[in-house]
């Protein structure tokens, strides 16, 4: 009861959109029932179009972001400053009519700022829970590596559990729930880079990279006067996204595909080019992301192509290359491509 009440409170705190210039109308599904695959592709297409209107020239990144959203994962955006990490996170959050919280991580941020705190209510003479920033459908954690490890842990724990425990009381987080954290790999002074164990909890890492020249010109054009984010109206709502997530869960995965996922993980573990391979959690994330990828393609079953499409974003931030590999200037992406060529595609597992 408590959680539900607070949920509503947060929703009210969300700023309402200024205008509805977005041609897409809000598509809402009845809560509780899984969406059909056609609906999944339709809604995902609207989402992608909406985000692409703000983040120009990066359709692959947007597709991966939506995949992670539908696969119930969390997204780590890692890139140099100013390429639109925060903008992507904010756009995704804005495109969905749901509660959004943005947390700017600083060294003095406390765990209770994330999770919430119990305060004594003089009126009812009892402790009352004041939910933290994490109680939202979409949480944008900006520059997560600037907070102290203690605060980082608080966030990551709730990410994993899907719930928050304060003073012995457990509060469920709203569904859908996605954390989009950004991180700057260049500026290292005064930061606490996420340890490997923490990075493992993010389903995928995306690097946006610099836009192409044309996309950059277009960006100057569209962002010159007023940010398109200001005029973006949501194209779907939380309930619809939940329904889509349920639809994704029902996508069929054959034994062959499961074997393929495990083979890929095993290959990273036995590869001589890698110091640390993929964890079983990575296998799980791969499988879920593959399902979402298949669903976005309108298929009710996963293909090896789906797995291959998500291997790089899902695995690249979890594996650590050996010194030799680094010396040879081979990126983790190249190592993974190489592994995919070597691991045979399963023929049948049924």
């Amino acid at each position: 009861m408590q959680g539900r009440h607070e949920d509503d409170a947060i929703k009210q705190a969300r700023p309402t959109p200024v205008g509805t210039t977005n041609p897409e109308t809000l598509l809402s599904l009845p809560a509780g029932s899984p969406a059909s695959l056609g609906q999944v592709t339709e809604v995902a297409g609207r989402l992608a179009r909406a985000i692409n209107s703000v983040i120009e020239g990066k359709p692959d990144v947007v597709h991966t972001a939506i995949t992670v959203l539908l696969a119930e994962g969390h997204l780590l955006l890692e890139d140099v400053p100013g390429v639109g990490k925060t903008m992507l996170a904010k756009t995704l959050a804005r495109s969905i009519d749901c509660s959004v919280r943005r947390v700017q991580f600083t060294p003095d941020l406390l765990p209770s700022d994330i999770t919430g705190v119990s305060v004594f209510n003089q009126d009812v003479r009892d402790f009352e829970f004041r939910p933290g920033a994490i109680f939202a459908n979409v949480v944008v954690g900006d520059e997560i590596n600037r907070a102290s490890p203690k605060t980082q842990s608080a966030l990551l724990e709730s990410m994993e559990e899907g719930q928050v425990t304060v003073d012995g009381q457990t509060y469920d987080l709203p569904k859908p729930f996605i954390v989009m954290a950004t991180q700057n790999p260049i500026e290292m002074e005064g930061t606490y880079p996420l340890p490997e164990a923490q990075r493992d909890r993010f389903m995928a890492r995306i690097s946006l990279g610099y836009p192409s020249a044309r996309a950059e010109v277009a960006m100057l054009d569209s962002h010159g006067q007023v940010s398109p984010l200001e005029t973006l109206s949501p194209v779907t709502d939380a309930a619809t996204v939940s329904a889509m997530v349920r639809a994704v869960r029902s996508v069929f995965t054959s034994d062959a595909i499961k074997q393929y996922v495990v083979d890929l993980s095993a290959a990273t573990r036995s590869s001589s080019a890698l110091r640390l391979g993929a964890s079983p959690r990575a296998s799980l994330h791969m499988l879920r992301a593959s399902r979402a990828h298949a669903a976005l393609d309108g298929r009710d079953h996963v293909l090896p192509d789906d797995v291959q499409a998500i291997v790089l974003p899902v695995l690249a931030h979890r594996i650590i290359p050996t010194g030799e590999t680094q010396l040879a200037r081979r990126s983790t992406g190249e190592v993974l491509q190489d592994l995919m060529r070597r691991v045979p595609v399963p023929a049948s597992g049924r």
Partner: peptide, 11 residues
């Protein structure tokens, strides 16, 4: 081939 390999049983 994809259906025979990866689709749900009964396809």
């Amino acid at each position: 081939v994809e259906r025979s390999r990866y689709a749900p049983p009964g396809a």
